[in-house]
């Protein structure tokens, strides 16, 4: 079963909203895993009842460890090879000791490999977590995985990679469709989150800001040889011409969701909006478009 990445460029265009609504809509028909890869600001979980007043508790699946060097000063000869090898400025060799800034270390192992005296050893340092939330009886059968970057940590991509790995393990044992809620932007976290997906759904709103940012992300996705299509969110709220940009990028517009206060209200409360007819029409069109592209099977969802 394929992996669909949901991305946008600009933040706040409705990636998470699309991810949770699409997941909930498809969950009756397809076995489904939702992977929240926006590990700096993961917001899927509250839609599935993970809050203080809910009995449903997320499970910690994994602490994400980075192999960070630790120096044994008694073995250090002060040659400075480690410090020259480190491209992230994480090590400074001063006389016969090495100062290590653990937060800057990416765990590449370069310093450990070049140390001639074996004074550096790796030890695991946490950069974040991977958590899971399983549905309660009566809830839509959606498995949610999400990552959480530690406060103050900059190793976003390591946490994204760990969530992706867990998602791959989960779908290997129970095949199903994977939806990825990706981070905004077009730099390394977005690249990592989209990498390896079979298709990318780009969420645009009809504003100059959104179109400017989405064009950049769309070009990045196409350069990664991942096919993509656009969905329009908050149609009517703004004067940007999404269709013109879609033509310029030669990408299809898969479906449009109008701006409506009731959909915004559901979002503000972290609720899906499957009771809103326009949302159902939109998701139906999107599902048909995905089926036509053979990204979703018809009547072979594994349920």
């Amino acid at each position: 079963m394929p992996t669909l990445a949901i991305a946008s460029g600009k933040g706040g265009t409705g990636k998470t909203s699309l991810a949770v609504n699409l997941a909930s809509y498809l969950a009756g028909e397809y076995r489904l895993l939702l992977a929240d890869l926006d590990v700096e600001a993961p917001d899927c979980a509250p839609y599935f009842g993970s809050s203080a007043d809910s009995q449903q508790a997320p499970r910690l699946l994994q602490e994400v460890y980075i192999p960070v060097p630790q120096a044994d000063d008694s073995r250090c000869n002060g040659c400075g090879a480690c410090s020259r090898a480190c491209h992230f400025g994480a090590l400074v060799a001063i006389e016969n000791t090495v100062r290590i800034n653990e937060l800057l270390c990416k765990g590449c192992g370069h310093c450990v490999r070049v140390c001639p005296t074996g004074a550096l050893q790796e030890r695991p340092v946490s950069a974040g977590k991977v958590c899971a939330l399983s549905p309660l009886p009566g809830q839509a059968p959606i498995e949610l995985l999400y990552g959480l970057l530690n406060i103050g940590d900059i190793r976003t991509t390591a946490v994204i990679d760990a969530v992706k790995k867990k998602a791959a393990e989960a779908t290997a044992s129970a095949p199903g469709l994977t939806l990825r809620d990706c981070p905004p932007g077009a730099s390394c976290p977005a690249v990592r989150a989209i990498h390896g997906a079979d298709y990318c759904i780009l969420v645009a709103e009809p504003t100059a800001f959104s179109l400017h940012d989405m064009e950049k992300t769309a070009r990045m996705v196409l350069a990664m040889h991942i096919p993509a299509g656009i969905v329009v969110n908050k149609a009517g709220a703004g004067s940007g011409d999404v269709a013109a940009l879609a033509r310029k990028l030669r990408l299809p517009v898969l479906a449009e969701l109008p701006w409506q206060l009731d959909i915004a209200e559901h979002g503000a409360r972290a609720e899906t909006a499957l009771d809103v007819p326009e949302m159902i029409d939109f998701l139906f069109k999107l599902k048909k478009a995905l089926q036509q592209m053979k990204l979703l099977g018809v009547g072979e969802g594994g349920l």
């Binding site: 706040g12 600001a41 917001d43 509250p46 972290a270």
Partner: peptide, 21 residues
Amino acid sequence: IEAGQSGIRDAKRLFELLASM
């Protein structure tokens, strides 16, 4: 702070970052 569940959760993490900085 965007007045919605997502905005509030994300702002909380930002406040924690600002406190650490």
